[in-house]
């Protein structure tokens, strides 16, 4: 990787990390997600700051083409994340439905009492 490209990626990684830290500090991210994204940010920053790291890992696990390892890890991570969100969404939908039922029953009871 050329020095310029290296610099660009290091800056991008730092920006990503800064955004994550900011969101966490604003408490716009729930703690459970902040841990996840902070880990991702740190990993990105490390791999950008020390370009040899990914090559070294790729060599260790026997991946000849280093970017393939990076993409594989990224893809796997996003896949797991998407599955996790589907799970959370299903749970939230169940809760929203139950809340809608409760609300309707309570409103009915209230109307009854006012009559």
């Amino acid at each position: 990787m050329s020095d310029t490209a290296h610099l660009v990626f290091a800056v991008l990684a730092l920006l990503a990390l800064a955004l994550i830290v900011r969101l966490v500090r604003l408490q716009a991210l729930k703690a459970k997600y902040s841990v996840l994204w902070l880990t991702v940010g740190v990993l990105l920053a490390v791999s950008a700051a020390v370009p040899g790291v990914l090559d070294w890992i790729a060599g260790k696990v026997g991946v000849a083409y280093q970017p393939a390892l990076f993409l594989l890890l990224g893809f796997g991570f996003l896949l797991l994340l998407a599955m996790h969100f589907s799970y959370e969404l299903s749970r939230l939908e169940t809760r929203v439905r139950t809340l809608a039922e409760e609300l309707t029953l309570l409103r009915h009871e209230l109307d009854d009492r006012q009559d």
Binding site: R97, A100, E101, L103, T104, L105, R107, H108
Partner: peptide, 8 residues
């Protein structure tokens, strides 16, 4: 009549 707040 029970009125749901949105379509379920």
């Amino acid at each position: 009549c029970l009125r749901l707040p949105f379509n379920l």
